[in-house]
């Protein structure tokens, strides 16, 4: 396997939120890249900024209160942050797909599953419809409903023909999540951003979904940014993993390297806090993610770090190469430390 092209590259992304208590400095220079056909995990405890990263890529950050301070998101040659609303929509709807985190609020409550999926299938990739199409008068005699049923079947929904007529209120969280996964699979795309897509699913179904994603990756050279707080799931699926802490990238490495030989103290903590590397919940290290309005100086992890040094409180560690395609942001590695 040769060197594959980078399709998504994020540099120095800073996102703040204006809240009543002050400016919340959530993303503090996120660096992240995804290559063609690569499955990349983004792992970190709750509140560390995974979803905000995803939303910023997808141009769906709520502004206000959110604010993109600086940074660059290159996707297939375009700087997403500089595109107009129209251009952005065009790129996104054709080349990106998204499975949102919250299945309870992500489906329109007043339309049936089939209605919404039907439109998505029928009109996929169109930015605007003509007036007749808009009024539903010119519905191509199409097989969109059949295709919807087929997609629902692929995400292991029982009785898809029945589900198609149902409204979101009638479906459980797990069902809705699978409907959303099916929607994300409509049409061809280059990058799938999946934000905790299997949290509400039981283990067998979760396994089926992961297999489905793997299949798409193989067949269509799909790239995936897979967000999860579950290292076990990330290990199964991902080629490479980013560990995120409090709005910064702590470390990235190939999955196996990361798990066998974690470099960043936070990664070590993450791994040792998992009883066994299967599907169990992540327990966490002592302490919690810091306050974003008044974050710790220097390395944001220093109040919880077992290896904290003097410099850690003063200087923010840069993300540096440590060999083997690995990057780590920690003072233990930045200046002649072990590498």
């Amino acid at each position: 396997m040769g060197v594959r092209n980078t399709i998504l590259n994020i540099e120095g992304l800073k996102v703040h939120f204006d809240t009543l208590d002050g400016t919340s400095r959530v993303l503090d220079g996120v660096e992240l890249s995804v290559r063609e056909g690569e499955v990349v995990g983004l792992v970190g405890e709750t509140g560390c900024g995974k979803s905000i990263t995803a939303k910023t890529i997808l141009r769906s950050l709520p502004v206000p209160p959110g604010r993109i301070i600086e940074g660059e998101i290159l996707f297939l040659g375009d700087n997403l942050l500089e595109l107009s609303r129209e251009e952005g929509h065009q790129v996104m709807s054709k080349k990106m797909s998204y499975i949102p985190q919250d299945p309870m609020t992500s489906l329109n409550p007043v339309f049936s599953v089939g209605e919404e999926m039907g439109d998505l299938i029928r009109w996929h990739g169109r930015r605007r419809l003509g007036p007749l199409e808009l009024m539903g008068l010119r519905r191509k005699h199409d097989n969109s409903i059949a295709k919807a049923v087929e997609l629902l079947d692929r995400v292991k929904i029982p009785a898809p023909r029945e589900i198609i007529r149902r409204y979101p209120v009638e479906l459980s969280g797990g069902m809705r999540q699978r409907v959303l996964i099916a929607m994300a699979l409509i049409g061809y795309s280059s990058l799938l951003i999946a934000d905790e897509p299997t949290t509400a699913l039981d283990v067998t179904i979760q396994k089926g979904i992961l297999e489905l994603i793997e299949e798409k990756v193989k067949e269509e050279e799909l790239s995936v940014l897979y967000i999860t707080h579950n290292l076990g799931v990330a290990r199964r699926l991902c080629d490479r993993i980013y560990v995120m802490y409090a709005g910064t990238i702590a470390e990235t490495a190939k999955t196996q390297d990361l798990l066998d030989n974690p470099k960043h103290p936070y990664t070590s903590g993450l791994i040792s806090s998992i009883p066994k590397l299967t599907g169990d919940e992540f327990k966490g290290i002592d302490g919690r993610i810091p306050d974003y309005i008044d974050p710790p100086s220097g390395c944001r992890f220093h109040p919880r770090c077992p290896e904290v040094m003097e410099i850690c409180e003063q200087e923010k560690p840069e993300l540096v190469k440590v060999g083997g395609g690995r990057l780590v942001a920690c003072h233990l590695f930045s200046t002649g430390g072990e590498s």
Partner: peptide, 27 residues
């Protein structure tokens, strides 16, 4: 405009005017 489902359907490829005149307007 700020609802999750509006943002999600726009992101996964719903034509913009259909999203507005059908999906948002009904709500």
């Amino acid at each position: 405009l700020r609802k999750d489902y509006t943002i999600v359907s726009r992101t996964i490829g719903m034509p913009e005017n259909l999203n507005i005149y059908k999906y948002m307007l009904k709500n």
